[in-house]
Amino acid sequence: MDIKYLIDYFAHASVKFTDVFTKRMEPGEVDVGRTTAPEKCGLVVPLAGSAVFSFDGTPYVMEPGMIVHAGPQMPIEIKVTGHKGWEYAVVHYSLPTEEAALFPLAEQHFPINTGFNTQIISHVQQLIESYSFPGNMAIFKSKTLFMNLLENILLAAKMKVLDSANELMEQTLQYIHEHYAEQISVSNISREFGIERRRFAYLFEQHTGMNPSTYITEYRIRRAKDLLEYDVIPVAEVAECVGYVDCFYFSRVFKKCTGLSPSAYRKIKIEEAKYG
């Protein structure tokens, strides 16, 4: 689930809190033959333990940090895993009938990876407590807590996505640093990491402040500068060492980046080394 679509959904759909309940199951216990509530959507929020929770035959391995959204009247199966009891909350909300066709996410099941987050569990517990009291003030408070819970879930999920993207971009940087001498390109790298090219370029620029092609070029030129400080390595060989098969093209790129030809840069560096 793309977090952007999820945020758009909850930002524009007329979601309305309806109820919340909790359930505890013992290790090894299995619950089958039930369906989700009719005319309601739900967020299954693990509170303790772990279980395999299936919706319409699709299993989700659930524990605190992994929330699952489910649509109305979906067949469910639950199997507790591990040696601890499984405890979870189901937060129900409804959507006006006329909006169902506009927001297909309401009818779907999908995971929301928030990572373990004590604020989410705290908001669920507050919501459970508020819902247990009678009166209009309790109803109003429950509505407010529900929206706060949604905000916390979406923020945590967004941060999880950003953390994952940052980790992936660090891996692509490492790949460039190890393979810059080869004939790599933005397309090669995006295929290597299984990311659509434009998506990769966007994430890379967000992470580094420059597009991938510029980064590869600048990294190669930095490595070329290091090699040019040694008078014994011909310029053509330096070009090959940093991934350029065409020495003349390398010279043009080098001059564009530094304002000097490779030979002129080498001469200056050798003079600097000679006279301190």
Rank of each mutant, 00 (worst) to 15 (best):
K4D: 15
A89L: 03
Q73R: 10
N211D: 12
M1Q: 13
E182K: 00
L95Y: 05
T114S: 14
L145E: 03
Y93N: 04
G209T: 05
Q174S: 09
F53V: 01
K79W: 02
S187D: 09
I7V: 03
G71R: 05
I139V: 09
V44K: 01
N152G: 06
D226P: 01
T58S: 02
K225P: 04
G135C: 05
P96V: 00
A156D: 07
Y202W: 07
V32S: 02
V15N: 13
V91C: 04
K141H: 10
Q126K: 06
S50M: 08
I221K: 00
S130V: 00
T208V: 09
L127K: 08
D231M: 05
I270L: 12
K141N: 07
E205T: 12
D231F: 02
R266L: 10
V44T: 07
P262W: 01
G243A: 13
P104T: 02
I120S: 07
A224S: 03
V44E: 04
A264Y: 13
C41L: 05
S122F: 00
A106I: 00
M210N: 07
S54D: 01
M159H: 12
L102H: 08
Q183C: 03
Q206M: 13
G57A: 03
F204G: 12
E29M: 15
Y175P: 04
N211E: 09
G71I: 02
N113W: 05
E107S: 07
D56M: 04
L154R: 00
E87Q: 14
F116Y: 11
I216M: 15
M66P: 02
A100N: 13
L105F: 07
I128D: 07
E218V: 13
L102S: 05
D19W: 10
H207Q: 09
I195W: 00
A51C: 15
L95Q: 10
K274T: 15
E170H: 03
E205M: 11
S213L: 10
G42Q: 06
G28M: 11
L228P: 11
A48Y: 09
A224T: 15
A239R: 08
A48D: 15
I139R: 11
H83A: 10
A156N: 01
Y249P: 02
E237D: 13
I139S: 12
V235H: 09
R34F: 03
A51G: 10
K274L: 12
E237N: 12
Q125P: 02
Q125G: 04
I112S: 06
N113M: 09
V61R: 09
R199I: 11
A273K: 14
L149P: 08
Y202G: 10
N117D: 09
